[in-house]
Design a protein around this nucleic acid. Structure first.
Lengths: 134, 134
DNA sequence: GTAGGCCTTCCCATTATGGGAAGGTCAAGG
DNA sequence: CCTTGACCTTCCCATAATGGGAAGGCCTAC
């Protein structure tokens, strides 16, 4: 299977497959006589794993940890759960931060006429004008 | 006022102040004979504005738009509100995406024993094992 | 034999920020 | 007068993950 077919089968772009190989996330595949990379079902399975981990927001570094745990038959589920829960914490922290921004922005937008006049509580807030309406 | 003092007064690092100047977000300040940048209260006000916009999650590009609107006395509040609301939409999209990850991960983590045994529904899910418990 | 569709490597760009080196300037204090 | 320290300057590099694109090799079909 060529890299294009592996990309198709895994949902990971050929560009990214090469990159993952370069950074050591996946093992270098065999090469044909013409120097083409060849992949088998096992490699594609790994790529799918990576794709799924990425879609859940795991960084490539975390993904590497998960891949190693996956390969390690003597792992403990506790080790995997640790990776997952700290990622959850991270996501929740970021969500809270962004939600705070949204709350502030919605308040400001609510107070903004959104009309033809120049007066704008949003700009007033950004400008540090504590006399901003609302 | 030197760049260090402007950084102190605005909460924007000296490094970032130089960068904002380099990308044209702020105007190049005056220089002293020894080639030091000098800032006045007006420039610091702009830096504070940027700082506040960044803290609300606006990109530097959006911040530039907001700075121009701020400077434009004939702006309409509608134009400002447009920038804000599309940023709110963007944040909410990202929050929803991350919340989806959290929901999935919490479910998987809940189903994971987190003990000394190797069996792990989290890895099963990542591996695409549709027989994953839960 | 040539055109198209793969593949290869290499370089560049993105976003916003920080680290650090090499060197200039200035003020204080010995 | 010289040193020390705290500034400042510019320049280069690194981050995370991904895509774009060029230049060139290989193979298959027509």
């Amino acid at each position: 299977m060529n890299i294009g077919q592996a990309a198709e089968a895994s949902g990971v772009s050929a560009k990214m497959i090469r990159y993952y190989e370069e950074i050591g996330l996946i093992a270098p595949p065999a090469r044909t006589g013409n120097n083409y990379r060849v992949y088998d079902g096992g490699q594609v399975h790994v790529l799918r794993f990576i794709k799924r981990a990425r879609s859940l927001g795991f960084s490539l570094e975390e993904t590497e940890t998960l891949l190693k745990l996956w390969a390690d038959k003597s792992r403990t589920s506790a080790a995997v759960k640790d990776v997952a829960t700290s990622h959850i914490d991270d996501l929740e922290r970021r969500i809270a931060e962004m939600q705070g921004m949204v709350n502030t922005l919605k308040h400001l937008a609510h107070c903004c006429g959104g009309d033809h006049r120049p007066d704008c509580p949003i700009l007033d807030d950004l400008a540090g004008d504590s006399a901003a309406k609302g």
